Amino acid sequence: MPFIAATAKIDLPYKTEQTEARKQALELFSKNFPEAKRLIFAFDNTEIKYRNFCKPLSYYEKPNTFEERNNEYIKTALDYSVQATEDCIAKAGITKEDITDILFVSTTGLATPSLDGMIINKMRLNPHVNRSPLWGLGCGGGVSGMAKANTVAKANPDAVVLLIAVELCSLTLIKSDYSKSNFIGSSLFSDGIAACIIKGDNHKHNNEVTYVGSSSKLYYNSLEVMGWDFQDTGFKVLFSKDIPTFIKEHIKEDIDEFLSKHQLKMSDIKNFIFHPGGKKVLDAYQDTLGVEGDFLKTTREVMNNYGNMSSATVLYVLEKFMREGFEKGYGLMLSMGPGFSSEMVLLKVS
């Protein structure tokens, strides 16, 4: 089976304390959004201590257009994708010429040609690399990308697949949007760039993290739960307060069904590699899954130190597991995203 050879993440230069982001949000919103003072407690209740930002806080105070923000997205995404890829290549003990496939995941900016093409051009990768840009999967994109990367490596045991997730959520902030969803979003979302190398089974390895299977599910009649509303000013964030309720109603049954296909039960899962979403989402998982102990410790620590980086977050969680060590047994990657949807990947850790 395919295996995960290496992971890499980016600690951005403008990592900011949540207290500073809170202070700025109150200043930006209070004049035109009277509820700001009443809702500012949302920043305190996230349990986020630091936010990973690609720009200093002063950047977000200044007026800017969607075009300007998207141009920043392209430049920043390209620079840090290359940096994460170079780090991942070194960790995997390969050369850039070995890469056969690229999957590029993002939902926070637009580019055609897509960023994977720009990365090939800038790094002078093999011009025959197979490219798959994945757009619009939101927070579900990291797990979905991992599933698709492993599918590619399973189909071609000689494959060396590069998976990159880039989300620059801060650059989607519409300064003139004084809605509640934008205010709450400004308490959670951050920027993240992560890369992974997945190899097919023909590559020699004593790797401990192999792919077992995956699941993808779209829930009918839930399109309004999370997404973007595209406006002249840019990407207006949409998400429902009902997400934790949705998780409580569906996720345990979905996980049990997925695991049963592999003759496993929840008790067989030793490593929970979850996308955090936010404190209420983590609480919903904790309440619903009935797993003993602090099984989401690693996920919570990533959220505390980075914020919600959309699709990239779960790859930061995976990187932390890869660096600090797994418990032997099985690992479950899970994230929820627009659609409303769930994505799962089952890993075996030896």
Rank of each mutant, 00 (worst) to 15 (best):
L103T: 04
E208G: 07
L171I: 05
R124T: 12
E61T: 12
Y14C: 04
L28C: 04
L12F: 01
T112F: 14
K23I: 05
L78R: 11
P13W: 00
F239M: 11
K217C: 10
F258S: 02
K270E: 09
Q24K: 08
I255A: 05
K9N: 15
D229C: 11
S181D: 12
G109R: 01
N150R: 14
R69V: 05
T108G: 02
K96E: 13
F239N: 04
L137I: 11
D201P: 04
Y178R: 02
A111I: 13
T210N: 13
T100V: 05
G278D: 07
V105M: 09
G307H: 03
A153F: 15
R69W: 04
S170K: 01
P338F: 02
D268T: 14
Y73W: 07
F43L: 07
F183D: 01
E27P: 01
K236Q: 15
A159S: 14
M309W: 04
F235D: 00
T172N: 07
V237G: 02
K261Y: 12
K280W: 14
V152F: 06
T299P: 07
F53I: 07
L315F: 00
K297W: 03
T210I: 13
C139Y: 12
K265I: 08
N130F: 13
V161M: 04
N71D: 13
Q286A: 15
F295V: 01
I99A: 01
L188W: 03
S144T: 08
M123H: 09
D268V: 07
A6Q: 01
D287Q: 10
T210P: 00
I74S: 09
A6Y: 00
S81Q: 05
D79M: 10
Y178H: 08
S106M: 02
I164G: 15
F41A: 10
G145I: 05
N32L: 03
F189C: 08
V281K: 03
S342G: 13
A77M: 01
V105Y: 09
H203W: 14
Y220D: 06
G117D: 15
S176W: 12
C139P: 09
F230T: 03
T298V: 13
P56L: 03
E301M: 08
L346W: 02
E35Y: 07
K252G: 05
A111R: 03
P63E: 11
N308L: 08
G290V: 05
T100M: 15
K148A: 15
P276Q: 10
E257H: 09
G227N: 01
N271Y: 09
F295S: 00
S132H: 09
A36M: 08
K236V: 01
S106T: 13
P113F: 04
Q231E: 04
T7Y: 00
P157D: 10
L26H: 12
K199I: 12
